[in-house]
Design a protein around this nucleic acid. Structure first.
Length: 281
DNA sequence: CGCCAGGCTTCTA
DNA sequence: TAGAAGCATGGC
């Protein structure tokens, strides 16, 4: 557990003694596209059809808009609070490169998102940049999600079935629109059963998701890591490929394979910052 | 104007 | 079966 105490005050759940959680590292690192920074230490977002404002002061984390039940049933798992990141970081830090990556962004946690939402948002992510991905996801929710207090939910697969690419035009997803529609059709019809995918061995799960038009190995692995809690999946995007070539020419250490997805998130953040620093010179 | 963006599909040899 | 072109859109 990465928190010591939990209290409820009105509609706010307050965690104290919080460790290994940074809002910028976790909510603005390209794993979820549904969080907006609304103040220096405050983020607002919607997940699992619930609106939440997250505020942090030192080691105190406030979840505004959450009941104790919601915390126990949803947010605790969503923020991966039942995983010991202190222990994880200690293990990863035995590797010199990962030690630097972990030190650089020690507040990263890998969110456990809804599987359909993760699949869709990473379909939208291809050949795209993070600010624009956020825009596409926002417009998808505004146009096809349900309006709730504080914003819009992520649309269910069945809500998108029967639509045409023209219907999705307001989203401005470009060539990705037909991919979303194919995913929605396959998931809603049950030809791809998300809860069955959850039970499959990872290679079969990946192959199943890749039956969707527009889903290749990278998008499938992102869905598996961020939406199915498959922490052994290491989505190999251009940044991670670059990092692996640069730092691990002989291959990624096998002892970290079982948690490669978690390591990946630290590495992703780290190499991107290296690149930024080099560009500024 | 050109280049690029958490890739994938399609075409070509 | 590998390698390159094409893909919509928007920021720079």
């Amino acid at each position: 557990m990465d928190y010591k105490n939990i209290n409820v005050c009105g509609n706010t759940v307050i965690l104290t003694g919080v460790q290994n959680f940074g809002m910028d590292d976790t909510l603005d690192c390209g794993q979820s596209f549904r969080w907006e920074k609304i103040a220096d230490n405050k983020y607002e977002g919607i997940a699992f059809s619930r609106h939440l404002v997250v505020e942090m002061e030192k080691d105190k984390l406030m979840l505004h808009g959450s009941s104790l039940d919601d915390f126990n049933n949803i947010w605790c798992a969503y923020f991966d609070f039942d995983r010991d990141y202190g222990q994880l970081k200690k293990e990863l830090s035995k590797d010199p490169v990962l030690a630097k990556a972990v030190k650089f962004a020690g507040g990263i946690r890998v969110l456990r998102q809804d599987s359909w939402e993760a699949l869709c948002t990473f379909i939208l992510s291809q050949n795209n940049n993070i600010p624009r991905i956020k825009g596409l996801v926002k417009r998808l929710c505004e146009n096809f999600g349900e309006e709730i207090e504080g914003g819009f939910t992520f649309p269910e697969a069945k809500k998108l079935t029967g639509l045409t690419a023209e219907d999705l035009a307001p989203v401005r997803a470009g060539f990705r629109a037909k991919y979303i529609l194919d995913a929605a059709e396959k998931v809603a019809s049950g030809s791809i059963n998300m809860s069955a995918v959850c039970e499959l061995p990872v290679d079969e799960a990946r192959a199943e998701l890749m039956k969707i038009l527009g889903v290749g190995p990278k998008v499938a692995d992102c869905a598996l890591l961020f939406g199915f809690n498959r922490i052994e999946c290491m989505p190999a995007d251009v940044w991670i490929k670059r990092a692996l070539e640069m730092f691990y020419p002989c291959g990624f250490p096998t002892k970290y394979m079982p948690v490669a997805g978690l390591a990946q998130q630290y590495l992703y953040h780290y190499v991107r910052s290296c690149e930024d620093a080099m560009n500024r010179e």
